[in-house]
Design a protein around this nucleic acid. Structure first.
Lengths: 215, 215
DNA sequence: GGATGTGAATGCATTCACAGCA
DNA sequence: TGCTGTGAATGCATTCACATCC
């Protein structure tokens, strides 16, 4: 009816959409043509109702009596996530983690292309990391504009993460993936996601200790 | 009163507990002695009520009229998460990401100590990565038992992640952090957390595209 | 006054259950 | 029959609001 999106989509549903896509691609590679909400859910420890409800937020993709056609749904989900077209991504931080990320070649198949690596440390600028020559932060604005980059990965020490984020946003970046173990604040119109190794391990520690108490 | 935990603790509350700890340590380093739920919440974009409710699941740590004593609360939260004592951690996968992780020295301050690195590739076994000599998977069971390791990090290709997880669990590991871009299934008494780079970027892509439609 | 801890109220996400279609 | 899409019901998490204490 109204072509512009009005009903709010629950955030958890969007997170699961990525997981559905991953599973669907696995199903596709195994030669499956269709999949039911029950099967897709089982592969992720979710209920069938959850899967159907999540997908229904975005449209009617299923076929009653049949299920979902795998390749068709893959295309739909990619379109929703915006990964049906390649997005350019930049990386700041040429330390250990930064190097590992710049050597990771799983991006392209997922719709992302790493196109530039920056670092503030003049000792690292000019180094060759895989396909990339490390550039100084002074080049940021120009490169972002020229390559139309909207997503940035922050892999710098905690004490400079906020400063780097501010620079990226000023240069035109609209979404940030932060690996620094610190809370970074951004304006409301900028998206941010954080991955903190210590936080992840702490969650496991809690659950493991809990299990040993309960038992 | 009943010393055994009976009321269920919401999962989101546990996740935030780690974030509180991180902020509290930042406050402590800046010399702050006390902090209110409002201040702690503001630093993480949460409400004061949220902070108080989360902490109250675990006990009464605050002081009316004063707030929370920073160092005191740090100790309490560490105790709850089980990171007041050092936990040994192992890593499987000596590829790019594995090397980056084994070179990361931020673990110890957080209560975790990486003590062993494994890989199945015989070409990598024996290599020296930072402080670690890469060991063959055949050593797994013995090392886990001897060093009393309960947590494991999986940094291997997607197609062997499930197999590695099974081996780790058989060897006695109780909590897994999975970096492979695939859904890994574990028994109910084993904890698992996943970090998938593509999933993170897809979330950003969705939000960034959404913003450009709404505007 | 300033701030916590907590029952009650609200709001949001998940699950149920079923009409409808292939 | 098999399976989707969806309103209604449930269950959980967040927020409100206030009694209580320093």
């Amino acid at each position: 009816m109204d072509p512009s999106r009005t009903d709010p989509v629950p955030d958890p549903a969007v997170r699961r959409l990525s997981l559905y896509l991953r599973q669907l691609e696995a199903f596709s590679q195994k030669g499956r043509r269709t999949v039911s909400s029950k099967q897709l859910g089982a592969s992720l420890n979710l209920t069938d109702a959850q899967v159907r409800k999540d997908l229904a937020y975005f449209g009617q993709f299923g076929h009653p009596g049949i299920g979902y056609r795998v390749d068709e749904l893959i295309a739909q989900v990619k379109h929703i996530l915006g990964t049906d077209k390649l997005s350019n991504v930049l990386l700041v931080g040429a330390g250990n983690l930064g190097r590992a990320l710049s050597a990771y070649h799983g991006f392209d198949a997922k719709g992302f292309r790493l196109v530039a690596v920056f670092d503030n440390d003049s000792a690292k600028v000019g180094e060759q990391h895989g396909d990339f020559s490390v550039q100084p932060m002074s080049q940021l604005r120009e490169v972002v504009a020229k390559l139309n980059i909207r997503l940035g990965i922050i892999a710098v020490p905690a004490d400079v993460a906020q400063e780097v984020a501010d620079q990226l946003i000023a240069a035109g970046i609209r979404g940030l993936l932060n690996f620094a173990p610190v809370s970074v604040h951004v304006p409301a119109d900028v998206a941010i996601n954080a991955v903190d190794l210590a936080v992840q391990l702490e969650q496991l520690s809690f659950q493991v200790n809990l299990a040993s108490i309960t038992s």
